[in-house]
Amino acid sequence: MAALWLTILTAGLLTFLTRLSFIALFGRWQPPDWLRQALRFVPPAVLSAIIFPEVLMRDGALAVQADNFRLVAALVAALVAWRTRNVFLTIGSGMAVLYLLQWLR
């Protein structure tokens, strides 16, 4: 438990220092262009890196098949997210598809 608290505090401190960085450094260093470009790709890269194994794998092995209900539900949710941009509808539709498939089986 203490390790968990330390994790949260460290992550929080690093986040705060990131936010403070250039405010504190003003006039001494500006972010270079390559960094600006790279940071644009952080959210899509990290989010996908978390999503893909969650939906494409089962028990540590690749499971790209119709009886992988999480994959089907995730595809439906992605479609809903794309059309509606609504977080409740995205989660609702994904969970509904998952529960429905599990119930039908």
Binding site: E54, V55, A77, A78, V87
Partner: peptide
């Protein structure tokens, strides 16, 4: 699984 779905809504 709702967490994975939240990430889909974010990405």
């Amino acid at each position: 699984f709702a967490l994975a779905l939240t990430f889909i809504a974010l990405v």
